[in-house]
Nucleic acid binder design. Structure first.
Lengths: 339, 339
DNA sequence: GTCAAAAATCGTAGCGCTACGATTTTAGCT
DNA sequence: AGCTAAAATCGTAGCGCTACGATTTTTGAC
């Protein structure tokens, strides 16, 4: 059944034109602006398209128009509901506007990010979405030589390259700290994924520590070696509370870490929140189901996707004023029973 | 600073050639097969590329060679560690072989899948990766008129369109059932996400029910209205156990559902596993941290990605015999303390 | 019926690159 | 030095489409 040599793309616009008895230009026009073709031809063209199973060749179109419907998106990892929900929303909004997402995984590594930026720019994308403000020197130079619209998302508070949609991670830390202080806690700890890996976790820590210390409290820091891992988190929690048995509250860089801490507390029979208050970050699905339900920070995951899409789209239409290129979506403390 | 009208792609291969004092063909050759260019020119060309910040235009290249380095991947949702881990692995393996992933979200909707297939085929992709065997009529016809290599992943046991990498969901159900039967349970229930939405959850249910009933047990089915939602799961569990207080074991279509059930059991003081045995599917991160840790099925998430990539790559090199186009990776029961 | 204006259609010239055969250069002999 | 084979380089002709100005057809006022 394998008909041709290779190239799955067989039917061309010219063949459609021939069958419909019009010129290729008319077919092209019909595809791009159907309203400008007379109904009679439009029907014949559509019939020919259906009959032949014609699919336009995106590359040829993109080359000829020197525009592309590609938007590149780089996230540290898609294995993480933070970014995957943003991606899903972003995808939905951009696709309905006719754009195609090219997704890349930086794995929290800026030289990988550079490689991906290079690869995506070679598609001549209509836009580019990056996570955070941290890019290496070469990436910055690549982007500087390029007038592609760029959104930096999931952070806020630095100038940024072009457009910014996110929230302040420092505020997240502050919010948790204020809540714990309000509950009368003073001796705190912060258990975190690795700062090297995730700079934004570092920002949350600083917001937490600054607020606690300003109120006369203390913060003990524990950093995991990599991403959150239940076993390591358990061990870390155990030694933390052996060394500092007076700790009254633990803030975590994210909900997975908080879950690890919570399970260790259950094993050790340290009651939450009576003996130890606990808070996370992310408001992941399971946080409503733990016992007790986890107090956490709700980051605007889907909103980031939605507003990134909106900004990019209006920017591409050339109607986004300079003043609207920066958006702080803020965060919300979700008060449950763990603090 | 905005120099040109539009088109972020400014420097062409011709300009590089001019600066390096060679013809454009030589630059092209250098980029594609560097070994065939003399070291002297190679250096000059590389210098020119660096100096001008040249980035090749993927679309032009793709059009000219009528090949593309694009591989389309369709998953039901990326907001789910099942698929996102497969995607991450797939991405890593394929990118290192020079391919670019075009990811689409079908949202468990086959007309959306069709639209995405159309959109991806218009890129003239080198390969296509789909989730499962269920595709609508038009999708099948699109694919039939097209000799793009296709992998259907995350399932096994049907003929498939071309290549298949996955495991049997029926076996997952059977494995859980056998384990529960071994523990002496007979009156069972299955709490599931919606079958309409996720056909594979239905297969797991059938595997479970068939095995239990063959051993003389009973299975009560409860289906959620959509994706797993902690609150609805809790309600469903409560009424299930009111109506059938003799139930001794609950199998769930996935770990999130199992977590919802577990939390409801805790609220109602039904001891797990003494009063009720519980099992999930997926072996998600949190399953080691629950109390008690959850018995579940480990699907080969990363292996699917890895073998899909391997198969696709060797197929693209034309060296994958017909006999190696189908791979059952199997699953493993992870015995913890909930059953 | 005639004619100008508007609408519809068409032809041509690329977009930036690759494939491949033609041509030039180099290397290795005698 | 002269010659041949191999290696390196180049020129040309597209890939399938879009942009845009030129041409043809239609419309409707008189």
């Amino acid at each position: 059944m394998a008909r041709n040599r290779r190239s799955s793309q067989r039917v061309t616009m010219g063949e459609v034109a021939q069958l419909a008895n019009v010129s290729p230009s008319t077919v092209s026009l019909y595809l791009r602006r159907p309203g400008e073709v007379s109904p009679r031809r439009a029907d014949k063209i559509q019939a020919a398209i259906d009959r032949l199973g014609y699919l336009p060749n995106t590359m040829a179109g993109g080359l000829a128009s020197s525009r592309s419907n590609v938007i590149g998106v780089l996230v540290p990892t898609i294995t993480n509901s933070f970014f995957s929900e943003t991606l899903e929303t972003l995808e939905r909004h951009l696709r309905s506007a006719g754009y195609q997402l090219l997704i890349g995984n930086t794995e929290f590594d800026d030289s990988r990010e550079e490689e991906l930026i290079r690869s995506i720019l070679s598609w001549n994308p209509a836009g580019l979405v990056l996570t955070g403000f941290l890019h290496n020197r070469k990436s910055l130079s690549l982007l500087a030589h390029n007038d592609t619209p760029i959104v930096e998302m999931w952070d806020y508070g630095q100038p940024g390259l072009d457009m910014v949609v996110g929230f302040s991670h420092h505020s997240c830390g502050r919010l948790v700290a204020e809540h714990m202080l309000r509950q009368g806690r003073r001796r705190m700890a912060f258990v975190s994924t690795n700062f090297q890996r995730d700079v934004r976790a570092g920002d949350r820590y600083h917001g937490f520590r600054d607020t606690v210390e300003a109120a006369g409290g203390t913060v003990e820091l524990r950093e995991l070696s990599g991403r959150s891992h239940a076993e390591e988190t358990g061990r870390l929690t155990q030694t933390l509370l052996q060394e500092h048995p007076d700790i009254e509250a633990i803030a975590c860089s994210n909900d997975m870490v908080a879950l690890g801490v919570m399970m260790e507390c259950q094993r050790q029979h340290w009651a939450i929140p009576d003996r130890i208050a606990l808070a996370g970050f992310g408001n992941l699905d399971f946080t409503t189901s733990t016992v007790p339900p986890l107090t956490t920070i709700e980051p605007p995951r889907r909103e980031i996707g939605q507003h990134t899409a909106r900004m990019l789209l209006s920017r591409l239409k050339g109607e986004l004023p300079e003043s609207d290129r920066r958006l702080d979506l803020g965060v919300r403390l979700v008060e449950r029973q763990s603090v």
